[in-house]
Design a protein around this nucleic acid. Structure first.
Lengths: 208, 208
DNA sequence: GTCTATAGCCGGATAGAC
DNA sequence: GTCTATCCGGCTATAGAC
């Protein structure tokens, strides 16, 4: 495995766990077993490393998500909201084929990107991958035409919150489920539990 | 205003905005216009300052929330989920009387406490204020008895995610709502939009 | 491309004068 | 209780040998 990849893999683990400002280049290069200077040589700066890390996932996820959502838009007259959200499951879970714990790492990174670092990553994502949001909005509109684009904006945001926050603490949740309820769960189980929740949330009656 | 309070107020602003690891004691004492050494004199360490900050809110919020939820438990035979979640509104908004932007600051701090600092604050909160969770679980159970305690556990967590994540980015959301939809919103408006969403989510049919 | 070494700055924390 | 001064380690980033 080359140095660049070793760095990306180590950074992914640490950033997902401790956030960006909570992780130092020294920790990353130590886990990656490469020289401290290698990060700056290969990526230029810590910020660029973070972007490269998100790009590694988003370049895989975005097309697969857009395909999955387009499929619903083209082949279903009036999809259910559960169908729309289920369109996320396979693309998200396929990130586990890219890397061990890819799904939860990616969603945790996404969570940190919204709170850490004064939103520069949020800017980066919305400006580089707008197709996801457009397709999702269109699919929700088709499933629930009475929702205005403003309603959809809010409920999409709430849904992001649910997913991202849940994934940020998946490990803790799986532990609790095991201790308190004797259940052995994995990321896929957690995702399956979220879908009815967010589908019902987005499908809530409109109070005017 | 005494030094201790000046520090708490400055820390609240900065921590809410930039997270714990993203904020330095130097920034805090500079905004507070007190000496750098004052934090360690008054609080002992940065970690203890964080705890003191959360305590300042939780000591007000916890009893008011417990009263509000107990009220529903005692005086309503079968409350609706909207009623249960509405029980949070007044206690949360009353934090604005404590401090300017108290509600959103507190919820942002709560958000950071779940992702920053390896969960030590999460531990602190759940171990020091268990009454909130117990009362909330009881109220949800009364509103929707078919939910098992396991179902409630998951859906409570999803709800936390929605609230905390939304509040972490309230400022950005209010900006977008203003630019894209010409709406002038405040925290109370955002909270009112969340309630139907989470009530519907928690009330989603149970897939078995 | 990878290393050592180090610059230069910032972090939390503390000693000790007042 | 508040200040200055400082310790000491960690931080990102870079220069320069190999």
């Amino acid at each position: 495995m080359d140095t660049k990849t070793r760095i990306l893999n180590a950074a992914e683990l640490l950033f997902a766990d401790k956030g960006f400002s909570g992780t130092s280049l020294r920790e990353i290069t130590s886990i990656a077993e490469v020289n401290l200077a290698a990060v700056n040589y290969h990526f230029g700066s810590k910020k660029e490393l973070i972007k490269a890390l998100m790009k590694r996932y988003l370049d895989v996820l975005a097309p697969s998500l857009i395909t999955s959502l387009s499929d619903i838009l083209e082949n279903t007259d009036k999809p259910s909201l559960e169908q729309v959200f289920s369109a996320f499951v396979e693309p998200l879970l396929s990130l586990n084929k890219l890397h061990e714990n890819g799904t939860s790492n990616f969603l945790q990174l996404l969570g940190h990107s919204y709170t850490d670092s004064q939103g520069f990553l949020r800017w980066f994502i919305t400006n580089n991958y707008p197709g996801i949001i457009d397709n999702f909005t269109a699919a929700v509109h088709k499933a629930y035409p009475e929702l205005t684009s403003e309603d959809i904006f809010w409920r999409l945001h709430f849904t992001m919150g649910t997913a991202v926050f849940t994934m940020s603490s998946t490990e803790a949740l799986i532990d609790i489920a095991s201790n308190d309820f004797g259940l052995k769960l994995d990321v896929a189980d957690v995702i399956k539990r979220i879908i009815p929740y967010v589908a019902a949330g987005v499908g809530a009656p409109i109070a005017r």
